[in-house]
Every structure is written in C-alpha cells, then in structure tokens.
C-alpha cells in the first residue's frame, strides 16, 4: 500500500511536470513576444503619445555606458538616489535622443503604483502611464484605479517639475474624488522622478 501511494503520487507529479513543461515550451515564444510588444507600446504611449515617428530604444549602448561609468564614480547608493528606477531613452528615426522614459514606484493606497513617466529633453512631461490592475496595480477597484482614466493622465502632459503637484498641495493637478492618496502618489512619484533625473543631468554636466 505504501509503495502504491508513493508510486501514484510520483507518477501524477511527473505527468504534471511533463505536461506543464511542454505547455510552457510551446507558449513561451508567444508570451515573450507579447510582453516585449506590450512594453514597447507602453513606452510609446508615455513618450510622445500623439507625435511623429520615433523609436524607443532599450539597447542604446552609449547611454548605458555613460550610466555605468556614473554609477562607478558616484557609488551605488548615491546613484540610486538620483536615478529613477528604470530608464529608457527615446530616439528619433535618425538616432538622435529626443526624450527619456523612466519608471517610478510611488507608494499608493494599496501598494506601490508602477508608473511610466515620459520626459522631453527640456524635462517637460510628455505623458504618464500607471500600470493597469492586470499588470499589478493594487489600488481600490472603482476608486484608486481611476488614476488610469484618460483625463487624469492627460493633465500631466506639458507640465514642468514644479507644477506636478495636486491643487490641494499648491500645484496644478486635479485629484480624483475620494482617491486623493492614489492621485497624490502618482503626482509626487512623477515629480520626484523628475527631480532625481535632473540631479543626474547636473552630475553629468559637472563631469
């Protein structure tokens, strides 16, 4: 009886593992392609939502080399303080840099709100894009999730660092009714991201 128990559990586990690895292998290329495609669409939405042809590059080597050398000169802790969490550069069709997109994780009501922020070269916001609930947004359904509504995201476009504050805090942005905490998180996250990016630009200028 004992042997039978061990055998049947082992067989079920093995079958399940084989089946799953087969399904994983067959679906993986499509899933990866889908993820990469989505990231690109998200970056494009954030960089210049209504603009001309351009390319969002994740493989801009010169940019990353400059980045790495900066990390070495100023140390990791300082680097993390001045650089937004993840950064992509936006290139036009000739390969000239015309903006950047970075990702910040401000703390909202239910957890961190993963937000992409696009900036032009003169550090004016070109667009923002918080993650959707399917991508891990944990704000209250029907309330905090309204940070995804187009009117809320649109009001960030064209704003400078100092204007990215809720009206309640002395800025120019309307908050969502009954979701001030989520609205404030996105606004402050975007502004802090710009501040850190500007610090990075100053460091770069000194070098």
């Amino acid at each position: 009886m004992k042997l039978r128990m061990i055998l049947s559990l082992t067989i079920v586990c093995l079958l399940s593992a084989f089946l799953l690895s087969w399904v994983y292998k067959t679906t993986e290329p499509k899933i990866e392609k889908d993820k990469a495609g989505k990231l690109k669409i998200h970056l494009m939405e954030t960089a210049f939502p209504d603009a001309f042809e351009y390319e969002v590059s994740t493989k801009d080597t010169t940019f990353w080399i400059a980045y790495d050398s900066l990390k070495k000169t100023i140390g990791k802790a300082k680097f993390e303080e001045i650089i937004p969490d993840t950064l992509w550069s936006v290139l036009d069709t000739l390969g000239e840099q015309i903006g950047i997109v970075f990702k910040v994780y401000p703390k909202g009501y239910g957890g961190p709100i993963e937000t992409l922020v696009g900036l032009s070269m003169d550090t004016i916001i070109t667009g923002i894009r918080p993650a959707t609930p399917a991508e891990g947004l944990k704000e209250t359904p029907g309330l905090g999730v309204k940070i995804l509504e187009p009117w809320f995201k649109r009001q960030f476009i064209g704003k400078k660092e100092k204007e990215v504050l809720l009206k309640k805090d002395g800025g120019t942005l309307d908050a969502i009714t009954a979701s001030t905490k989520s609205s404030r998180a996105v606004a402050n996250g975007a502004r802090e991201g710009i501040e850190r990016y500007k610090k990075y630009l100053r460091y770069q200028a000194i070098e």
Partner: peptide
C-alpha cells in the same frame, strides 16, 4: 488514486490545469 493521498493528488491536478490555462490564455 489511493485514498490517503487523494488530497495532494487533487491539488496537483487542479494547479496543473490552472497553470496550463494561464499560459494558454496568455499565448
């Protein structure tokens, strides 16, 4: 399936189907 270990076997079967559904739906 032997009686005493039916619950773990059920759980493996259920989670296998859930994972398959997750992958296939995404693809």
């Amino acid at each position: 399936i032997p009686e005493p270990i039916r619950i773990p076997v059920f759980i493996i079967i259920i989670s296998t189907f859930v994972t398959i559904m997750d992958f296939t739906l995404h693809a």
